[in-house]
């Protein structure tokens, strides 16, 4: 792993010193503060949240016209990852620094590993600060300290957020390897973002309705099938996976997703689930999200290692 630490460190210094990071950071902090502040002004919207989890309300309640914090993360988080990743390699190429770095005694993968880890670390730090801002404001408004269950739920959600944005980071890096030009890489990244956050929902609906059309009079089986197909298609979208994780982890009263037969829940006590139980609901989604990030990075890694240096 020769040189990886040097590259990692330099990339992190670069990220934290760059203007785009500063702008992103300011936007994110403002978002966090305003979301938390509006939530605190609108504590009535916390009514559906079990009493011992009030703090989680700051992450999921949408106050007035402003959407919730989880929505912000799932919607704009990808942009953070893509902005950090889209010129990782193509930028080095166009500046001519890649041959300078690779002619030093470092392994070729140190460069891509260093860049990915530096990006991930940047994301992690960014999210720590915004989570702390919201938590701080939340504790200050509510006036009591968080309990362990709340903290661990927020911790899991934090982890999922970093992985989610990490997926987009590695997607950005992949495009920066595939395309020679930074602008093509940026445009393709944005296209993927639009596809996975908007179009995938429409496609899922259309396909599900084609295969199992739900009419005015249909059997529950058809409705269940329709829902199952829709959810199946949505599983390839990291945004959909992340949304489900966020919902289950931050809302302890969520017990299941998709089609539920009334018979299944009759006689159920509406008590909140423990974190372990909540995690069990979204375990496949969680694993899927981590896998998406790792697969995407692995593809970038292989492509980068196999690329001829002349075409770099």
């Amino acid at each position: 792993m020769s040189g990886i630490r040097v590259i990692l460190w330099k990339e992190m210094v670069d990220y934290f010193g760059s203007k785009r990071f500063l702008i992103l950071f300011i936007i994110i902090c403002l978002t966090g503060i305003s979301v938390a502040y509006l939530a605190s002004q609108n504590l009535g919207s916390f009514a559906h949240i079990p009493g011992e989890f009030l703090l989680l309300g700051f992450f999921i309640s949408s106050a007035g016209s402003l959407p919730s914090f989880t929505f912000f993360v799932s919607f704009f988080g990808p942009l953070i990852g893509l902005i950090l990743g889209f010129d990782a390699i193509s930028g080095e190429r166009s500046r001519g620094t890649i041959s300078m770095v690779l002619s030093q005694p470092v392994f070729r993968d140190s460069l891509i590993n260093g860049k990915f880890l530096a990006g991930l670390a940047t994301i992690a730090v960014m999210f720590v600060s915004i989570f702390l801002i919201i938590l701080g404001l939340g504790i200050w408004t509510l006036g009591f300290s968080p309990n362990l269950e709340e903290i661990s739920r927020i911790g899991v959600y934090y982890l999922a957020s970093v992985v989610y944005v990490g997926f987009w980071l590695s997607l950005g890096i992949l495009f920066s390897i595939l395309f020679r030009r930074t602008s093509s890489s940026a445009l393709t990244s944005i296209m993927m973002w639009i596809f996975f956050t908007f179009f995938i929902y429409m496609i899922a609906n259309v396909v599900a309705d084609q295969i199992a059309p739900v009419a005015a009079v249909t059997t529950p089986e058809v409705v269940a099938k329709n829902e199952a197909i829709r959810r199946m298609i949505l599983r390839i979208s990291p945004a959909a996976l992340f949304d489900q994780i966020a919902t289950a982890v931050l809302n302890p009263s969520v017990r299941a997703f998709g089609f539920i037969n009334p018979a299944q829940i009759s006689g159920l006590l509406p008590t909140p689930l423990s974190l372990g139980q909540s995690l069990m609901i979204v375990w496949p989604e969680f694993v899927g999200l981590v896998a998406l990030m790792l697969i995407c990075f692995a593809v970038s890694y292989v492509v980068f290692m196999r690329q001829e240096i002349r075409s770099l």
Partner: peptide, 14 residues
């Protein structure tokens, strides 16, 4: 690479 200095055709610096 440890004992060889290389100046590529289109050298670039940060």
């Amino acid at each position: 690479k440890r004992i060889t200095g290389y100046l590529p055709e289109n050298i670039g610096f940060y």
